[in-house]
């Protein structure tokens, strides 16, 4: 580097490379153990090995607890300590892209499972889809409302993003709040739809494939609601700047990808498949 004015003494006191070498943190280990607890207690509860679901809710609470503290550390590192240089931000964006790609492949496998039976219903299913005796949901009722809400969330998200880039705090906050609320309402309606459903995850390959796919999407929506709530808080807390907001960018990418995912799911599983 051709230092123009700054002394080499000062430069030698600073970190020489742009990368963020994270300090020792308990959260990776803590989160791993709490996730293992959650998986175990969920499986044991749903297979009837435990007479109650207290452990499941306890494990869920611990997962949320560790997530909260880990996110708090990351917000401190990015907004308050300035550890996130351009190279770090680029790395996080790339990491998130890879994560999204792997998520999409997971959905691809569930579509494969669904279409494997739906395109060739065998004799045990009565050679029809939905299988004989199954009553599929109407695509014109709650699912249509959910589709409209997800499309609307795409609009409010873009509204929030443009307001953020144009330094309009009020509209950024509104945009993120509307998007969060749409996600919460989506999850609520999905819950209603599940509770009114005439079949369960244990009812034929139709129920299994349907609830695996829409349930995975629903869990992503819950995560997205949390991410959006966090973004709203970070805007409120002046964390995001008009040019540097990796957390918001990844949340937006996630929202749009999952919206598209839902459209395919709606078309294939609710509309064509019913």
């Amino acid at each position: 580097m051709k230092l123009k004015n700054m002394t080499n003494k000062v430069r030698g006191n600073m970190q020489l490379h742009p990368f963020h070498l994270v300090g020792p943190s308990p959260w990776p280990m803590f989160t791993s153990f709490s996730l293992m607890n959650l998986a175990l207690s969920m499986a044991l509860t749903s297979h009837g090995y435990m007479g109650h679901n207290y452990f499941m809710f306890l494990a869920m609470f611990v997962v949320f607890y560790s997530m909260t503290l880990w996110f708090k550390d990351m917000m401190a590192e990015s907004s308050y300590l300035g550890d996130h240089t351009m190279a770090v931000k680029r790395g996080m964006n790339q990491g998130f892209m890879l994560f999204v790609v792997s998520e999409m492949l997971m959905f691809v496998s569930l579509f494969w499972a669904y279409l494997h039976s739906a395109l060739n219903p065998n004799v045990e299913m009565g050679m029809m889809w939905p299988p004989m005796g199954m009553e599929a949901m109407s695509p014109a009722e709650l699912p249509l409302l959910n589709t409209m809400m997800l499309l609307a969330s795409g609009v409010t998200m873009t509204y929030a993003h443009h307001a953020l880039m144009n330094k309009d705090r009020k509209n950024t906050l509104y945009g993120f709040m509307y998007s969060t609320m749409l996600m919460v309402v989506f999850v609520f309606c999905q819950g209603l739809e599940y509770s009114f459903s005439s079949f369960t995850i244990a009812d034929s390959v139709y129920g299994s494939a349907f609830f695996s796919a829409t349930g995975l999407h629903g869990m992503h929506m819950m995560m997205l609601a949390m991410m959006l709530a966090m973004c709203t808080w970070r805007v409120y807390n002046y964390d995001f700047t008009n040019t540097s907001h990796v957390g918001a960018e990844t949340t937006m990418l996630y929202l749009h990808v999952l919206d598209m995912m839902w459209l395919f799911m709606y078309m294939v599983m609710y509309w064509w498949g019913s």
């Binding site: 300035g82 240089t85 330094k167 705090r169 002046y238 700047t241 540097s244």
Partner: peptide, 22 residues
């Protein structure tokens, strides 16, 4: 200097540490 109340800050207002140095 930090953000002015009621605004979205710019990176020059808000960035600290190595990010600001860069």
């Amino acid at each position: 200097p930090g953000a002015q109340p009621g605004t979205i800050p710019s990176n020059l207002d808000q960035a600290t540490g190595l990010e600001r140095f860069e």
